[in-house]
Simulated scan of single mutants.
Amino acid sequence: MTTILVTGGTGTLGRLVTERLREGGHEVRVLSRKAEPYAVDLREGGPALDRAVEGVEAVVHCASTPRGGDERAARNLIGAARRAGVPHLVYISIVGVDRVPLGYYKAKHAVERLVEGSGLGWTVLRATQFHELVQQMLSTFARSPVMVLPAGVADQPIEVAEVADRLAGLAVRPPAGRVPDMGGPEVRTFPDLARAYLRATGRRRAVVSVPLAGKTYRAFRSGGHLAPEQAVGKGTFEEYLRR
């Protein structure tokens, strides 16, 4: 039996990674800001973090927030893992963090570099956006009578459970470095995804695409966040919406 620490273990992804590992017979420590006995704010670190990593064979780092602090959290986690002699650090990142100049993507890419230079055994997996995120964005757009979408932008949503399966498998294997990206089964235009969302929720909205400006928009429009050559996901957006 392997002892594994999952940061962000109560979140959308971390909770499923925890479940998969426990189903496989592993002992899992769940780290989050409020989950006892490993309640830790990674941005602060401290003795509680050292106790959480002590004696674990792998850390799966799922904790992340677009509100900032990911780099500081990663430095604290890596420092604690070094002191404890943790042999394997697994990090979940996002497809396109090196191509899309969005602030959150830049932070995720910076964390990748910290992991790679940590001196620990490491594995980094990049995935496209989860169905949940796309649904949340479309829900926000649908608050108005007209859904105004960024013109020319597509997405490739993936089932979070499939990413959890992959992460759990990587955690119990030797460090593998940067592994192949995981993309959802289909690259879909935003109007196409919006109409699927409207059908599933029984709403009627006009859908309008509007061109935007800026480097970030151009990067999304050029598909910097997509992985069509790695469309390994199975679950579609419609299947997610039906659930």
Rank of each mutant, 00 (worst) to 15 (best):
D98N: 13
R99P: 00
V100Q: 03
V100C: 09
L102K: 13
G103V: 09
Y104N: 12
Y105P: 01
K106G: 10
K106A: 14
A107W: 01
K108A: 08
H109Y: 14
A110V: 09
V111I: 07
E112N: 09
E112D: 12
R113V: 11
L114M: 13
L114V: 10
V115K: 01
G119F: 02
L120A: 06
G121A: 08
W122L: 02
V124R: 00
L125N: 00
L125M: 03
R126N: 08
R126P: 02
A127T: 07
A127L: 04
T128N: 06
T128P: 06
T128H: 07
Q129K: 06
F130P: 00
F130K: 02
H131K: 06
E132V: 11
E132S: 11
L133S: 11
V134P: 00
Q135K: 14
Q136D: 14
Q136L: 14
M137I: 11
M137G: 05
M137F: 14
L138N: 02
L138H: 03
A142C: 13
S144I: 07
S144A: 15
P145T: 12
V146Q: 13
V146D: 12
L149K: 07
P150M: 03
P150G: 05
G152Y: 04
G152S: 11
V153L: 06
V153G: 02
D155W: 07
Q156P: 05
Q156I: 02
P157C: 09
P157A: 09
I158M: 04
I158D: 02
V160H: 02
V160W: 01
E162A: 09
V163W: 00
A164M: 04
D165N: 13
L167I: 04
L167S: 00
A168H: 04
A168V: 04
G169T: 11
L170Y: 04
L170N: 02
A171R: 01
A171N: 04
V172F: 04
P174L: 11
P175Y: 06
P175E: 05
P175K: 07
A176D: 08
G177F: 05
R178Q: 12
V179R: 03
V179E: 06
P180N: 06
D181H: 10
D181I: 01
M182P: 00
M182Q: 06
G183E: 04
G184R: 00
P185A: 10
E186L: 13
R188D: 08
T189V: 09
T189A: 14
F190Y: 15
F190N: 12
L193M: 08
A194Q: 01
R195K: 14
R195T: 12
A196Y: 01
Y197S: 05
R199G: 10
A200P: 05
T201H: 15
G202N: 10
G202V: 02
R203G: 13
R203A: 14
R204M: 08
R204I: 08
A206K: 15
S209G: 07
V210G: 11
V210L: 15
P211H: 10
A213T: 14
G214F: 13
G214V: 10
T216I: 12
Y217F: 12
R218V: 01
R218E: 15
F220H: 03
R221A: 15
S222W: 05
G223K: 05
G223P: 03
H225G: 03
A227H: 02
A227G: 07
A227P: 03
P228R: 09
E229C: 08
E229M: 11
A231K: 07
V232M: 04
V232G: 05
K234N: 10
K234D: 09
F237T: 03
F237P: 01
E239N: 12
